[in-house]
Structure formats: C-alpha cells, structure tokens
Design a protein around this nucleic acid. Structure first.
Lengths: 245, 245
DNA sequence: TATTAATTGTGTCAAATTTACACCATATGT
DNA sequence: ACATATGGTGTAAATTTGACACAATTAATA
C-alpha cells in the first residue's frame, strides 16, 4: 500500500447465485447464514476474497466448498458496492452467476452449510442486497437464453430435446411449440445424436443428444433470437384431434 | 473490520473505457499516466474508490474529473482482479463502460489530464490489463449493438439515420445497406421525427430524429437481431446506374 | 439558370425464415 | 390388441430479410 498512500483497503466479498434445474423448475441454491450479522437468515453462498487469490478462483473455491464440485460454470454478474449494503463493514461484493447440474452436487456438503435448493418462485427474502443480485441473475439467464442455446450446464451431459424445451419453458414461464423448438435447435447442428434413447421416459423414448462443444464455442456469437414471441400459444387440434381414428 | 476479523482489505480501483464517435471512427479516450508505477505510459482513466462512495458515483466522479460532464452513460463491464495485475499493490479494478458524445466534453479538462481521443485501430498499448479491458469493452459494444439499437449516447440528441448507420458501420467495420437499415430502424417506432433537417450535410438534408426514450426503455428487451450477416456487400448499380439519364 | 454530383427517402420482388398447425411412430399398461 | 401418452417429421401461409431501382433534394458550377 505504500505505492498508493491515499487509497484505503476495502473488504471484497464474492457471492454466488447458483441455478439448478430439476426437470420441472428452476431452483436456487441458498444457505442459512451461520454467523453474524443476519445469522440464521437466508443468503447466497459467499465468502471473502483471499489476498493471494484470483477472482474466479475465489468463486470456484466457494462453490467447491458448498457443492463438492470442481469445474462449475461461473461467470461474473456484477459488483454490488453501495455504502451500507452490509451493516457489518464497508464491503463490496462481486456477484457470480453459476449453473450446475442439480444431480451432481454433494448432499453432505449441502447439509453441512444448511443449504437447500429452492424454487425461484418460492424463494425467501434474502439478506443485504442478495435479492437484487438474484433478480439480476434471473434477468441475465433470460437474456442469454433468448439468443443463445444455453442451459446445457443445467442438464446432464446427455439430454433430450424435450428436456431442453422444458428448461426453456421454465426460464421464461411460457409454453413453446414442440416442433418449432426442435427444428430450430436441430438446425443449429449443435447437437450430436448419441444413438441412445432416454431410459426414464414413460412412453416413447426420446433421443439422447450431447453438445458439440467445439461448434458451440465457434458459433456462440452468431446469435439467433431464441425465444418465440411471448404470446399465449396453446396446442390446439393436433394431439386432441388424433383421438379416435 | 471487527465484524469480519479474518478478512483483509484490498484496494479497489475504478477504470473507465470511454467511447466516442466523431462521425467516422469510434474513438477511445486515453490518458498519459502521470504517477508511478508506469508513469508516462498510456492508460485508461481511473482512480480509487472512496470509502464513503457508491461504485457508480465513483465512476461518475472520475468521468466528471476527466471530461467536465455529468450524466454520462455508464455501466459496469467487469472486474479485473488477477494477483499481480498491478505491480504496485494488490488492487482489484472494476471496469466501467462509458459512452459520450465526443463534442460535448471539456477540452481544458482533457488537456489537464493529458488525455486524447484515439481511434480504436490506432490505440497504443496500455498499462496493466487495460488492453484486455478495452477488448472486452469493444466486444460488449458489438454484442449490444447487434441486438439493440444502442449508440444514441454517442450521437447528439438529434441525429439522422445516415449518422446512426455510419456509427453501426464503424462498430462492425462492415458496410450496411442503407435502405434495409432505414426500414428496420423505422419499423421499431423508436425514432421521433423532429420535423427538422440536418443543416450540416452538403447535399440533400437528412431528417433529424430524436429517440423515444419511454418506448426505448419499454422495448429494450424485445430484442431484434440488429446486425446484417457480416458478408461483403457493395452497393452496385443503384446510384452509379443513375448517372446520365 | 440549367446541369451535375452527392446524398437521402421510398418501393418492389424473390428468398429465407417463422408460425401454426397435422400426421405418424413408439412405448407402456390394461 | 388397443387406448394413452409422448416423441419425431412434414407442410403451407404469413412474415421478415436481402438485394436491388428509382425518384427527390441540395450545393456547387458551368
């Protein structure tokens, strides 16, 4: 600090907004804070940046601590630094946006931190400005999903098109036409047919695909509008009409 | 700090990537640093966050200091915090993305800071990780402009469609078809015809429009792909063909 | 003052994309 | 075997985009 005598140090926190998908709803991984201030209240998982650690490494450390997972998809979301946001001290927090496959994480680690997966629409009020962070993260998720096929991080490595569609429908809370979605997705040539079929589905087995990661990186910036216009769109005729004959 | 005894303070810097447009090229506002380390070298304008100041206020303070302007368009771009990025001390820097109308700023303030507007493609190497910040800012500018009609902050309050087109062409370094651009833009109903004509243009006066800010905010998230496919597209026939007769 | 050069504004048509559907296939349980 | 539920492919109409021609306006100039 001798180089910059007039500057004063500030506490730098890292907070993670962690999304998961259970096949039906988008969920958030939240913890019950076990230290003061705000002990016992719901919060994002976070921690302070270590003096000898890079930002993304700090975020990964915190995510590993909570989930037992390495190589989680993380990106910066924004910085929150309003004076007084944390009554304990002047802290500035970097919010990280993380996507994980809900089935991969370590349940014991979760229990240890009093963490739970909570549906977006049932989430409790959070401490400090964590509510704002979550809102920004949701907006970011929608924004990205609108023009890129993202969300693969939220699904197993092998997934079906109907699964991906349900994810998109959850992100936007809007029904999407099955056939148009499928066509658009396939036309990207981003999915590789594994030749396998989903063993879980109760009726006709859906094809399992995996992401062509190389192509995905290359094409990521040839954006497509990925969302259909958000208007009511109920499946009429079609299946119903096929009943009897 | 008594609340968080295990956390240690870190220096928090704010650096601004400032874009301007002179009607032809996108320019960056850079300064010659007048203190150590790296004294005399090209740098982004920056400063340290004050202990009692919000982040955006800090950025605005720094921008005002350099340009003499209030109410500059600013948004967060990202945080740079690699260990060793600043050899003087462990500092973490928040990069801010700013757009200003190049004609508005105060020349005296610029001189005081040894600041210059420099075309993107002629920019010198910058200190620390400022080069990365600029690259990210350019990418951000292109990304945003690809799906939103942005850039109004880079133009005067009243502007013509050809001006806006030149801005887009500068952002992407790609020629755009005049008629298709105009049609697409007008179809958004985002521009209000002021009834006035551009007095500067040498030939036919172009219509001056202003932005419908209310509608702009409302429609911002009904994204359109705003960029034409980036392929060579030369105007053939047309004007040339009109020569003689 | 009529002509020329440069630039702006509007229109048109073909191609590509999107939307809104129908139909068929496959698996399961009765 | 058949009813039911879900997955996969096709197609015609509507909309949007891309690639152009042509007419209008202004200042300089012949």
């Amino acid at each position: 600090m001798t180089t910059y005598p007039h500057a004063s140090g500030i506490l730098l926190a890292l907070d993670c907004i962690i999304f998961g998908f259970d096949g039906k709803d988008i969920k958030l991984l939240l913890i019950k804070r076990n230290f003061e201030p705000e002990k016992g209240n719901w919060s994002l998982m976070g921690g302070f940046l270590h003096p000898e650690e890079n930002l993304e490494d700090g975020a990964s450390r915190i995510l590993f601590d909570l989930t037992g997972l390495r190589k989680i998809y993380v990106e910066q979301l924004g910085v929150y630094g309003n004076v007084g946001r944390d009554p304990g001290a002047r802290t500035v927090s970097i919010a990280f946006f993380a996507l994980i496959n809900i089935n991969d994480q370590d349940d014991d680690a979760l229990k240890f931190h009093h963490a739970s997966w909570i549906s977006l629409d049932k989430r409790p009020a959070l401490i400090f400005d964590h509510n704002e962070m979550v809102l920004q993260a949701i907006e970011h998720l929608r924004y990205k999903a609108a023009m890129h096929p993202i969300g693969f991080e939220l699904l197993p490595e092998q997934f079906t098109i109907p699964q991906l569609q349900k994810l998109y429908e959850a992100i936007y809370a809007v029904p999407i036409d099955r056939r148009n979605f499928s066509r658009k997705l396939l036309s990207t040539n981003l999915l590789i047919d594994t030749g396998l079929k989903d063993s879980y589905s109760a009726t006709k087995k859906a094809t399992l695909y995996k992401l062509d990661s190389v192509r995905y990186r290359e094409k990521f910036n040839s954006f497509w509008n990925f969302m259909p216009e958000a208007k009511e769109q109920v499946e009429k005729g079609d299946a119903k009409a096929t009943v009897n004959k």
